[in-house]
Design a protein around this nucleic acid. Structure first.
Lengths: 327, 327
DNA sequence: CTGAAAGCGCTAACAA
DNA sequence: TTGTTAGCGCTTTCAG
């Protein structure tokens, strides 16, 4: 049967020393004779000893784990972001507990509640669910990405307003007369709305009427397609679309084909995000690129500082336009 | 300053009962009077008590954590797979510790070593690094996906051989005379090679000479592009390509454009994986679809069984061809 | 129905 | 240079 795992005590007995000594060898702390070290190491090898991380965590009151709460990982933007976060956290000695909230406040809450039970040393969140009171009532170090969570949680965001400006300006420069925008429903509190605000302002300055179609990130893809088809049906005159993310831009490009629109001749499209995976599959897409890796690094650095007890201010990072052929 | 977190003892004192009683209320175990329960609950509320998960884990000797070790999460296939795994594990009460091995055996080993220290109740792996001895020497429950890890680790795989057959047959049916294949270098032990074997057999049966170009999953994208350009330079006669994954298929389609090849007229392309994200951005791609979600469910069910002490045999799941316009 | 006490495996004062 | 001992916060026999 599963024989009991070897513990520090067993090693001590095998080596003929005390637990303290073994612990010291393990952590390379304090003064020890070469001889003792060798003896203990031999015993550890012989018994194939593996220290119990949980016991250490209990004593130290830290787990070297960071929780990541995002809507999903199955998406070019979030995939790249979480990969970069994991990488950066690993460099600093942290491992990652991943929680996908999906479109499910109950899941997010339950997940969060468990992590708050001293399972993690900190949290990086970018989920879209609202009014999860738990975020406010904890003093666990938290940093959020592109998401407003609570007054005391610093945010790492890209310059959404300027991104919206760059995208809209490009379409205007291209001579588009009927520019439409897609974005989240307005009741979801995300900095994405800055993109829409920039679009609206610029359009008004040019005497055009802003029109935004709302597509939720969590909508099933068929629903997204339906909303996009609606754009072409409601507004056959549309000659430019600024999509709030590249997945939607991809859908738009494909549905434009259904409606026999040539891109960029009949319709110009600008996307948003510029994640690696999208750029591989859709290199022709003109898009606003977020500095995803840099956002990850910044968020991790800020979290580390918060874990060390420092206060941190929110930070905004610049975006840039990537020239493809669609606008 | 950070005041000490409330512990069970504090609740007990506040409620005027023993720790045992509080623990019982917490776990809803044993007989308790309504009155005591209410009293304890009031005390927990008042003190905003959060049980310490680590202490419980130490006692119970289980963490309800499962480690996921894959090359990366920033990829349509692995993104969808890990999202599905997380979802399925969460349903069963497990949380996910994510480790991206990247192209880095040292990272994989260090990660693995830490997880083996009783940090997780089990492991699901699909990383490509070889000969990590740690996998053999542990009796932690492990299941692998599309990857041969060790004799005693059951594998969940899709029917790679049949996938290779379906793809190649499609190109042959299309009348292709010069079919080329891309796949991993042969020294990486992955079931992907079954796809190549099927391709080679079928091609020989039809009197064609199989030619495989090797592209590592972990190659930087510019290197992948270079290898694909090489295909067109070495073999201008190529009229069909069977790519071993959709990302490569996407690259091929774009590079075909550089070489002025029309798809499907001049060149037919079949991809592999059929992940959601790819199908959104590249719906026109004909590809072999793996049952990603089902693979995740199967792997989790098998892991659960192994955690419960059962032995498990490897399992193979069927694939199907998705008709796009590229072949 | 409730409590006292032992112990999960490790670390670190403090003593020697 | 090493050992004794208490304790991290929780659960659970066992006794009342």
């Amino acid at each position: 049967m599963a024989k009991k795992p070897v513990k520090l005590d067993d090693v001590a007995r095998e080596a003929g020393v005390s637990k303290t000594t073994v612990s010291r060898v393990l952590n390379q702390r304090g003064y020890l004779s070469e001889e003792t070290i060798a003896k203990v190491q031999r015993a550890m090898e012989k018994l194939n000893y593996r220290p119990n991380a949980i016991a250490r965590q209990l004593y130290k009151q830290e787990t070297k784990l960071v929780g990541l709460i995002f809507p999903t990982i199955d998406d070019p933007f979030f995939g790249q972001l979480e990969a970069a976060l994991e990488n950066e956290l690993y460099r600093r000695g942290y491992k990652v507990l991943m929680g996908n909230s999906q479109n499910n406040p109950a899941k997010e809450r339950s997940f969060l509640r468990q992590l708050l039970n001293r399972q993690v040393d900190g949290l990086i969140v970018g989920a879209h669910n609202q009014a999860i009171g738990e975020y406010q009532r904890t003093n666990l170090p938290i940093v959020s990405i592109e998401q407003i969570v609570s007054r005391n949680v610093p945010v790492v965001a890209s310059d959404n307003y300027n991104g919206g400006r760059l995208a809209t300006q490009r379409l205007l420069d291209d001579g588009c007369q009927h520019i439409i925008h897609t974005n989240y429903p307005e009741d979801i509190p995300t900095p994405n709305h800055e993109r829409r605000l920039a679009y609206e302002e610029l359009l008004r300055q040019h005497g055009q009427t802003p029109i935004t179609y709302h597509i939720s990130f969590d909508d099933p893809v068929e629903k997204k397609r339906a909303i996009i088809r609606q754009i072409f049906e409601d507004h056959p005159e549309v000659d430019g679309i600024f999509a709030d993310n590249d997945t939607n831009a991809g859908l738009i490009i494909n549905i434009a084909g259904e409606f026999k629109r040539l891109i960029p001749e009949d319709l110009r499209v600008v996307g948003y995000d510029g994640a690696n995976a999208t750029r591989i599959l859709l290199p022709q897409l003109t898009t606003i690129q977020q500095p995803i890796n840099q956002m990850a690094e910044t968020a991790v650095a800020m979290l580390q500082a918060r874990i060390n007890g420092e206060q941190m201010a929110s930070k905004m990072l610049p975006v840039k336009i990537i020239d493809g052929g669609t606008a």
